[in-house]
């Protein structure tokens, strides 16, 4: 296969960066840089709104709820002796909790 470039051309290409002027940063570089830094700082303050945080909180809430439901279902039924056919009145409530103390005037 024939070479595309002559030795002279290869040499010329190799030396093509001679006298190169360094490229200058684009105009308003600092302003754009400050602009890029700003959203990063703002994002930090609103971490509560990040999807990962919201998902984690909702997952914990859901797990606690499921755990509570399972616990309630597994709890033993109330013994028969504790059940009563009497209508719920203030007197029965006071009697159940031993709150019917006599008056000091009696």
């Amino acid at each position: 296969m024939q070479n595309k470039f002559s030795e002279q051309r290869v040499q010329s290409i190799m030396e093509s960066l001679g006298g190169l002027q360094p490229a200058a940063a684009p105009d308003f570089f600092y302003t754009r840089l400050k602009g890029k830094m700003q959203p990063a700082a703002e994002k930090k303050t609103f971490f509560i709104l990040r999807p990962a945080f919201i998902t984690a909180v909702l997952s914990i809430f859901l797990i606690v709820n499921i755990f509570s439901l399972i616990s309630i279902r597994k709890a033993p039924a109330e013994p028969v002796s504790m059940q009563s056919n009497k209508p719920a009145t203030i007197e029965t409530f006071a009697a159940a909790y031993n709150m019917n103390t006599g008056s000091v005037y009696e």
């Binding site: 290409i13 093509s16 960066l17 001679g18 006298g19 190169l20 002027q21 490229a23």
Partner: peptide
Amino acid sequence: HPGVLQEKKEDA
């Protein structure tokens, strides 16, 4: 590259 001399642009 913006700093390359005009006559060397193709080679560069």
